[in-house]
């Protein structure tokens, strides 16, 4: 059980208000998409969950307990994390990137190899790529390696920060398919930040909508589509889904 709850969260950068009075529980084992216009605080909210950002007020509960900020690395090993632009380490091969964490926590070689092969197959990466460096791969391939790295330790929680933002539409489509495949094969709590509502509706079961650091509405995709809470959401939907 991932049991992620944000209790009365506020965050300021100087005078700038990033998040205000967020009260939110994420449903276990489904994909929740956090959407909103840019500057609405989506990424900040995501980074609260793995402790990259610490709130000024309120409590972040993960795995049923408030985050212990003295022991963040341990918590983060249980949370997958992938970002836009892949964030692959350029000095490490594909294999070294994917297996870095597993090697550091001393998995045995067999287990590492089995898990790597399993993941690469799931995201359609040829196993012959293991000795390549990230710069030798296409953007889509790099993104897949990024997913494999984040999934390596089979985390119960998976945070994705605009992971497919920089890809061309065709590649994005493919990866989104693989992502759904991945999700069906290993159920987990996924929180996905995206500015693309279509992507959110395609990949997620639940939506969280932010505007200027405030939580506007959350619920299942169907609930929100049928019953937008206010005019902002209606116009946001219109601007994103038309054309």
């Amino acid at each position: 059980m991932s049991q992620i709850t944000l209790e009365n969260i506020s965050k300021f950068y100087g005078d700038q208000q990033a998040l205000l009075d967020i009260e939110l529980t994420f449903t276990d084992d489904v994909t929740t998409a956090v959407v909103g216009p840019s500057g609405s605080g989506k990424s900040t909210l995501l980074q609260m969950i793995n402790g990259l950002v610490r709130p000024n007020h309120g409590t972040v509960v993960v795995f049923g307990k408030p985050i212990d900020y003295q022991r963040l690395p341990e918590l983060r090993l249980r949370i997958g994390y992938a970002v836009q632009g892949t964030g692959l380490f350029p000095h490490l091969t594909v294999e070294a990137n994917i297996t870095l964490l597993a090697r550091l926590i001393k998995w045995d070689a067999e287990r590492i190899k089995a898990r790597t092969e399993e993941l690469m197959e799931l995201v359609n990466l040829p196993f012959s790529y293991v000795q390549r460096y990230p710069h030798e791969l296409s953007g889509g391939e790099q993104q897949r390696v990024g997913l494999c790295r984040a999934m390596m330790l089979n985390p119960q929680v998976f945070l994705l920060d605009e992971p497919f933002g920089a890809l061309d539409p065709i590649t994005r489509n493919e990866i989104q398919r693989e992502f759904l495949h991945l999700q069906r094969s290993e159920a987990r709590t996924i929180i996905l930040v995206t500015h693309d509502l279509r992507e959110a509706l395609k990949l997620a079961q639940r939506l969280v909508i932010l505007d200027q650091g405030r939580l506007v509405q959350h619920g299942t995709c169907a609930e929100i589509l049928e019953n937008p809470a206010n005019g902002f959401i209606r116009s946001f939907f219109q601007s994103q889904l038309e054309t």
């Binding site: 990259l52 090993l77 970002v83 964490l101 550091l104």
Partner: peptide
């Protein structure tokens, strides 16, 4: 950011 975020 990634190296922090993945738990190193």
């Amino acid at each position: 950011k990634v190296s922090v975020g993945i738990g190193l």
